[in-house]
Amino acid sequence: MAKVLVVTSGKGGVGKTTSTAALGAALAQMGEKVVVIDFDVGLRNLDLVLGAERRVVFDLINVVQGVAKLAQALIRDKRLENLWLLPASQTRDKDALTDEGVGNIIADLRTKFDWILCDSPAGIERGALLAMRYADEAVIVTNPEVSSVRDSDRIIGMLDSKTIRAERGERVEKHVLITRYDSARASRGEMLSIDDILEILATPLLGIIPESQDVLRASNVGSPVTLNNAASAPARAYTDAVRRLMGETVAMTVPVERKGLMNRLLGRRAA
């Protein structure tokens, strides 16, 4: 049974695209057949984070409009043979994305993949609604910051009312993924704690991704963090999150950086 999972947040810049790439890669690394779809029409970036920006020929809108076949638009990852990308269009005709067109593509992909990850654009407009429309599950990416938590709450409300599942009286299974978490600052009371966020959003926790230079380093070189440095703290956190998505019980910890002596002495590391 294929699962459709939307990675969403409401607020921009919280790590949706980075998380889609990392979760997709981690699932593929565990042997699942995965496609990641970029729904951010006009501002595509998932191709760049995955290092596939020079291989984009056709895109989601081309497929919706019948200009290209689905198989022509899918890009297979060069490192992970189980990971595929359906890129967004860079042109601005956002209205070209129709509910019916997206529905047909998702139905087709369900027959070919184990996981369909939809990378939502920021906001609560058409693109974000279509990204969540056909979802079975949702990962709500949240930063420990008031504006992000408020927008996550809004998105949770939409997942419960605007999705196909909600309209049928079924539930979209929702998970909160906290990113850019700094345990030191949280323990000093300078940042909302995990408990604060979970209590406010009343949604179960999928994982805690620590603030880390490894995330930026991975996107700089166009490689998901779980692939680029599998031993890094964020990579371990994403891998744990994926194991939870697959139904395993994994103790919830905030992975910490393991620094070597030289690195500690130098206080930095080259990418």
């Binding site: 008031v146 300078e190 909302l192 406010i200």
Partner: peptide, 12 residues
């Protein structure tokens, strides 16, 4: 002063 409790209360 720790600002997180203020954030939490405002959000709630």
């Amino acid at each position: 002063t720790a600002s997180a409790p203020v954030a939490r209360e405002r959000l709630q």
